[in-house]
C-alpha cells in the first residue's frame, strides 16, 4: 500500500512547485498508472516516495511507514526503477545485481534463483558478465527492472519502465505487473504510453503542473467526461483544459 498525503516540493534554487499538494492512495493488489505531460511532476513524486527527495511538506507512506521518519523500513518494502540510465556505469552487471542483493540482505540461494529467472526472462543473462557501460539503453532498462525485482518487494515503483524495451520485454514486464497485482502486491508506475495505461491499470492518476487533475479508473474517466473514447483523447482534452484553468488555481477533481 502506498499513500501520498498533501505532498509538496519546490527544488532548491527554483521558484515553481514541482509537486503541489499531491495526494493519492494505492491499495494492495492494484496496478496504478501515473500520467501527465513532461515536467508535470511524476518523477519528483516518485523520488519523494522512494526517499530520494525530501518533501517540503506532506507525508509519503509505504505500508503504513512514513518514508521520512523510518526511511530504511519504508525503502526495504519498495523495489524502484529510476529514470536515470547513468547509474552504476562502472560496475559489471553481475556486480551491480550482487550489490543490490547484499543491500537487501538476500541469501545466496535466493539471489541465484531470482537473478537467473528474471535475467533469462528479460534475455540479458548472457550479458551479465559485461560492464554496464557496454549496455544499450534497453539492456540497462531491463537490468534495472531485474534489480528492482530481486527483493521481491511488496511495492513495485517504476518510472517510465517501457522506455527502450523491445516488444517481448515490454510484454514480459506487463505480465509480471499483472501477476504481482493479482497476488496482492502494489504496482505504481509512470508512463507516456496511453495504450498500456488504458489496458493495464486498475486505477490512474493524471497530473499536470504538480497537481492531480484526475484520479480513478478509466471507466470513471469516460463517465466523467461523458465520452466513450480512448484514453489518449481524454488525456489530451483534460490536460488542455487544466492548462487553461491553471490561471485560477482550480483542479478538476
Amino acid at each position: 500500500m502506498i499513500e501520498l498525503i498533501a505532498v509538496s516540493k519546490t527544488y532548491a534554487g527554483s521558484n515553481i512547485k514541482a509537486v503541489d499538494g499531491l495526494s493519492l492512495k494505492i491499495s494492495d493488489g492494484e496496478i496504478f498508472g501515473f500520467l501527465g505531460p513532461n515536467g508535470a511532476g511524476k518523477t519528483t513524486s516518485l523520488k519523494i516516495l522512494t526517499g530520494v527527495l525530501k518533501a517540503d511538506s506532506g507525508q509519503a507512506m509505504v505500508d503504513g511507514t512514513d518514508v521520512s521518519l523510518d526511511p530504511i523500513a519504508a525503502k526495504s518494502r519498495i523495489g524502484y526503477v529510476s529514470d536515470n540510465p547513468e547509474a552504476f556505469a562502472k560496475l559489471k552487471a553481475v556486480e551491480y545485481l550482487n550489490f543490490i542483493a547484499d543491500v537487501y540482505g538476500l541469501d545466496s540461494e535466493q539471489r541465484h534463483k531470482r537473478i537467473n529467472d528474471y535475467s533469462s526472462r528479460f534475455e540479458i543473462r548472457d550479458a551479465l558478465s559485461s560492464s554496464l557501460a557496454s549496455f544499450s539503453r534497453g539492456m540497462k532498462q531491463k537490468l534495472f527492472i531485474v534489480a528492482s525485482l530481486l527483493p521481491d518487494p511488496q511495492n513495485w515503483v517504476l518510472d517510465e519502465p517501457m522506455v527502450g524495451l523491445d516488444p517481448k520485454a515490454a510484454f514480459a514486464l506487463k505480465s509480471i505487473m499483472r501477476n504481482r497485482a493479482d497476488s496482492g502486491k502494489t504496482v505504481f508506475f509512470s508512463t507516456h504510453v496511453m495504450e498500456v495505461a488504458e489496458r493495464l491499470c486498475d486505477k490512474l492518476a493524471i497530473i499536470n503542473k504538480g497537481k492531480i487533475i484526475f484520479i480513478g479508473s478509466f471507466q470513471e474517466l469516460k463517465k466523467l467526461e461523458g465520452e466513450d473514447t480512448s484514453l489518449e483523447t481524454l488525456f489530451l482534452e483534460l490536460t488542455e483544459k487544466s492548462g487553461e484553468l491553471a490561471g485560477n488555481g482550480d483542479a478538476v477533481l
Binding site: V94, E95, L97, N98, F99, A101, D102, V103, G105, L106, D107, S108, R111, H112, I115, N116, R125, D126, L128, S129
Partner: peptide, 18 residues
C-alpha cells in the same frame, strides 16, 4: 562459463563490505 562465473560472483557479503 557463465554458470561458473555467476556461481563465483554471486556471493553474499555483509553490507559494509559490499
Amino acid at each position: 562459463e557463465l554458470k561458473g562465473f555467476l556461481g563465483k560472483k554471486l556471493k553474499r557479503k555483509p553490507v559494509i563490505l559490499a
